[in-house]
Amino acid sequence: MNEFSLKDLTRVVQALLLAAKEPLSLERMASVFEEYQRPQPAKLAEALAVLQQEAENSSQELIEVAGGFRYQIKADYAPWVSRLWEEKPPRYSRALLETLSLIAYRQPVTRGEIEDVRGVSVSSQIIRTLEDREWVRVVGHREVPGRPALYATTRQFLDYFNLKSLNDLPELDALRELAASEEKEWQDDLDQAPTSPLLDLTEDEGEDLDTQDDPETMGDLLDEDLPEVKELTFADLTQRFEPDGE
């Protein structure tokens, strides 16, 4: 068979997506075919469109994130699916989510700059947790005494929060509206939320590593000025979400 029909190609692409443990780009999908059978990107996109339409009336959805395409269970079914595991969804402190939000919206940024905005120190445990989850990483150093590390979000961060790019982050107005809403403790649903859980300002009972109360809302924090970044610009980050050429 020299060329796949759309029907056959669709089933092959579906098998690849179901077997993969991570999102698949068009290039990665094409690479599994022998050269003489390799479909063009337009043909793969056509097969993906068929699969997306098929999934509309099912419990799963086929979405595109920064790393490529993947199947996932629709958020409507999360309450039942989550019961397959005894382990409860992770709960994250407000301090951790504020730190992550500042990195996401103001990147690249140093730890000291985050502390200047929040008015409290950022614990090493918070940074370590974000790095362990591969949501942030060091992308450079500011050329000042001590050469502090510059932190930015990763492609894994985008994939986890169902984002194709940084442009898909919620508008700051949405964060301000949430911060101004009634105060209550938010149950963290990071593995279930259909939109970016950066909007969930979760209080973590007894586990917040900061020693001072946060004096400002998320909207206020994001409005604070940060020192100008000269060595690494926001635009440069779009090139840093690709896997390292190792």
Rank of each mutant, 00 (worst) to 15 (best):
F4R: 07
K7N: 10
D8E: 15
L16K: 09
S25F: 04
S31F: 12
A42W: 06
E56C: 05
S58Q: 13
I63R: 03
A66C: 15
G67D: 01
R70F: 05
I73Y: 01
I73S: 01
K74W: 07
A78V: 01
V81C: 03
L84H: 09
R91I: 08
R91P: 02
Y92M: 06
L97T: 07
T99I: 10
L100K: 01
L102C: 12
I103D: 02
R106W: 07
R106F: 04
D116P: 01
G119N: 04
V120M: 15
S123A: 15
D132R: 12
R147P: 02
L150C: 02
F157I: 02
L158V: 08
L158A: 06
K164A: 08
K164D: 00
L172V: 07
R176E: 11
L178E: 06
A180M: 06
S181H: 11
E182W: 01
K184A: 12
Q187A: 14
D189T: 10
A193L: 07
D200Q: 15
E207W: 01
E207H: 08
Q212Y: 09
Q212C: 02
D213S: 07
G219I: 00
E224Y: 10
P227N: 10
A235V: 11
L237W: 03
Q239C: 01
R240G: 04
F241T: 08
D244G: 12
